[in-house]
């Protein structure tokens, strides 16, 4: 097979067509739209507004809260998902663990099941009157202090959403970290034990370097996925109550499909993309693409 046989590029044709059709073209379309006032219901008021949509976005009273909620959502989700995922991976990988494969498969379930269903089930669990969480707290004697309308109160809505998101996402970390842990040669632990290393010393000197690169990859992916996540928040609260859980993706969706401000919502989307690209792009290139 000659190196410069141009027919070889034909193998990329289907992927190329799809990427252009579904990724590149809409992306360009979105960039163009974001410079237009473009309401689907008001055809007469459409027109080029330059950076007008972005100026409007920065002056939107919901802009900073959305950014803040998104940041809180992302930071707390990713940190705790990682910690939970790692602790469970360490437990599965421990020499005392039993039924490792069954364990892994069962622990993966929240990740494999549709978000729509996870979210609805949790919406019930967290509901104020007959939700299981409140009932469990009541049985434990915390009636009043810990029986709340978790998704309906401004002060508890973000923590509640974050917990659901952690529950749903940590299995991914567990699976990847278990594989990384298994790839660390046993001899390294044995050598450390011979040298009299304690559990924490072994963790620092052997485990941490062993899982560093896979950790970087999953954390980078999850920062991107969490900050741009739409489904979990939309399904649990749709941004409420009183916009207390509003993030840029839910704001964008509502602008587009409730108010039909396609131009404005494209600007929100583009802003989201640019932040991710500027902040995560270099890390992505360094840690994810480097591996290829």
């Amino acid at each position: 097979m000659k190196k410069n046989d141009y027919t070889q590029y034909l193998y990329f044709a289907p992927v190329f067509v799809l990427i252009v059709l579904i990724f590149i073209f809409p992306l360009c379309y979105s960039v163009i739209l974001s410079f237009f006032e473009w309401n689907l219901t008001k055809p007469k008021q459409r027109g080029f507004v330059g950076f007008g949509n972005f100026v409007e976005l920065f002056h939107d009273p919901l802009f900073l809260p959305c950014l803040g909620h998104g940041l809180v959502f992302t930071v707390f989700s990713v940190v705790f998902e990682y910690l939970v995922g790692l602790v469970i991976a360490l437990a599965i990988n421990s020499r005392f663990a039993v039924c490792k494969n069954v364990n892994k498969a069962l622990l993966m379930l929240p990740w494999a099941v549709p978000i729509a269903i996870n979210s609805m089930v949790w919406k019930f669990m967290l509901s104020p009157n007959y939700g299981y969480l409140n009932q469990i707290f009541e049985l434990m004697g915390f009636s009043g202090s810990l029986t709340k309308n978790w998704l309906g109160e401004v002060s508890t809505v973000m923590p509640a959403i974050i917990v659901v998101n952690i529950w749903r996402s940590f299995p991914f970390y567990t699976i990847v970290l278990t594989a990384a842990l298994m790839a660390i040669p046993k001899e390294m632990y044995e050598a450390a034990e011979v040298d009299g290393a304690s559990f924490f010393q072994k963790f620092r000197a052997v485990t941490m370097p062993g899982i560093a690169s896979s950790s970087a990859v999953i954390i980078i992916f999850h920062i991107i996925w969490t900050f741009t996540n739409f489904d979990v928040i939309y399904l649990l609260t749709a941004g409420g109550p009183l916009n207390a859980s509003e993030v840029l993706p839910t704001l964008m969706y509502r602008e587009a499909f409730t108010h039909f401000n396609m131009g404005y919502s494209s600007a929100i989307g583009l802003f989201l993309f640019v932040i991710m690209f500027v902040l995560m792009g270099p890390l992505y290139t360094k840690f994810v693409l480097k591996e290829q």
Partner: peptide
């Protein structure tokens, strides 16, 4: 890196 939410508007249109 492309989030699905970003493309939903132009794709819809």
């Amino acid at each position: 890196m492309l989030p699905g939410i970003l493309l939903v508007i132009p794709l819809y249109m």
